[in-house]
């Protein structure tokens, strides 16, 4: 048993524990943003890909690294973008958390009841940091 392995296992065990604790607090409502968010984070394999693409261990390593950098970047850029897009869609009925969303989709959603109209129009300067 090398000490590298044991040290790595320490980090792994603790990170898994933290991950479990943090993620079990994510409500079912946000499970899809969670998936795309962790997906973006797992794009951290970029760190390995960048080293392979920029190393001096022959063209094969560089080319494989380059493809890996591209694949991981797709996940990082796409993952964060789409998670952000999704989270912007989640709006509460409460006017306090209202966001200036794009006008309601569809044809019949122009007028709504009192609270809804407020939330659709967006109340600027609300305490939530959800101004779009």
């Amino acid at each position: 048993m090398s000490s590298d392995l044991v040290f790595g296992l320490y980090v792994f065990a603790l990170a898994t524990f933290v991950g479990y604790q943090v993620i079990s607090r994510v409500p079912a409502l946000l499970h899809t943003p969670l998936m795309s968010g962790t997906n973006a984070i797992s794009g951290i394999s970029l760190v390995g890909s960048l080293v392979a693409a920029g190393s001096q261990h022959g063209l094969l390593a560089n080319v494989l690294g380059c493809i890996a950098v591209a694949a991981a970047t797709i996940n990082v850029v796409g993952g964060f973008m789409i998670t952000d897009r999704m989270l912007r869609m989640f709006n509460a009925r409460r006017p306090a958390a209202a966001a200036a969303q794009a006008p309601a989709h569809g044809s019949g959603a122009n007028g709504t009841n009192g609270a809804r109209t407020k939330s659709a129009n967006g109340v600027d300067g609300t305490p939530g940091e959800r101004r779009a």
């Binding site: 898994t16 479990y20 984070i41």
Partner: peptide, 10 residues
């Protein structure tokens, strides 16, 4: 290791 563990446990 940390990011992989976060993704894996999720």
């Amino acid at each position: 290791i940390i990011s992989g563990a976060l993704d894996g446990s999720s």
